[in-house]
Design a binder for these strands. Structure first.
Lengths: 150, 150
DNA sequence: ACTTTCGTGCAATAAAATTGCAAATGACCG
DNA sequence: CGGTCATTTGCAATTTTATTGCACGAAAGT
């Protein structure tokens, strides 16, 4: 992982649709060397995968919400059980157990209020061990990236 | 946006490194038709971009934290100002203004505690109009996807 | 100084994307 | 229904891109 690898990672995190020849030129390497480096980054698992990022609005998912959850019983197995349940929801795009007052934080991508209503009904029913939850609606997205500084 | 387009979007959100020929076969189309559909999805902006997703651990960013922020003065311009400042931080990968008690929520990807220390120093100094903030460390990631249901 | 290891560039080859064109499909209207 | 227009499709040719073998060169260890 030298300077060239870092540069490649930065470039690929921004736009992975570039051709190998382009990348090679930018980092100042021959296409073959460049390709071999990228392949190695895949093989060693530094690059997890290549994905298409959709425009949420154009894909019909306009609402975003963040829910912080406090459980009744806080044991490890209870938190795990709650997360397992949350993960199954397609609208849940991020689910974390966290330190501090709250036990879990969920990030949702929703079509409309009805979808949120149905989801909260499933996740926060009586039997689900949830003591309290706070729903915050995203008003403005200042930044949203998958990019990790390297 | 018919059934085939949706299927393509699902496939591309999971793995955009597949060849056009593979995709074409999965959705039951000729390579040329398939390619034209994908290009159209790009042109219409449904597909925003193609990116490489890194393994955070292998890229040297092991810590994740979520900070909820309450501002002193809540006006639109103050929130905007705070978000603008937060966005500039490379460790901040998501920054939202939200409804409810808290004004903003930040998602951080960190190397170590020192980085967090330095960042909080910059964002939550006296002059930054922040009344209170709560830092929750991510203990376990149940789910983390860029995939939007289509 | 010698060997080993690793990364590099070049050139040939294989694979994939892209395009033009004619046929097929399907929605709309008299 | 029958006809027209717009759109989408598949095929085949072409272009572009990825991939591989190989020999050379730099750096590290002995």
């Amino acid at each position: 992982m030298d300077k060239i690898d870092s540069k490649l990672l930065r470039l690929l995190q921004q736009d992975a649709s570039r051709t190998n020849a382009e990348l090679a030129e930018v980092v100042g390497l021959s296409p073959s060397s460049c390709l071999r480096r990228i392949r190695r980054l895949h093989e060693t698992g530094v690059i997890d995968r290549i994905v298409a990022v959709l425009n949420p609005t154009k894909a019909g998912r306009t609402m975003k919400a963040i829910i912080t959850v406090e459980l009744e019983r806080h044991g490890e197995q209870y938190i795990r059980r709650f997360l397992d349940m949350a993960e199954k929801e397609p609208a849940v795009i991020q689910a974390y157990s966290v330190s501090g007052e709250t036990d879990a934080i969920l990030m949702l991508r929703l079509k409309d209020m009805d979808e949120l209503d149905a989801l909260t009904e499933r996740l926060f029913r009586e039997e689900t061990n949830v003591a309290r939850y706070y729903t915050a609606f995203v008003i403005r997205t200042g930044k949203e990236t998958t990019e990790i500084p390297v």
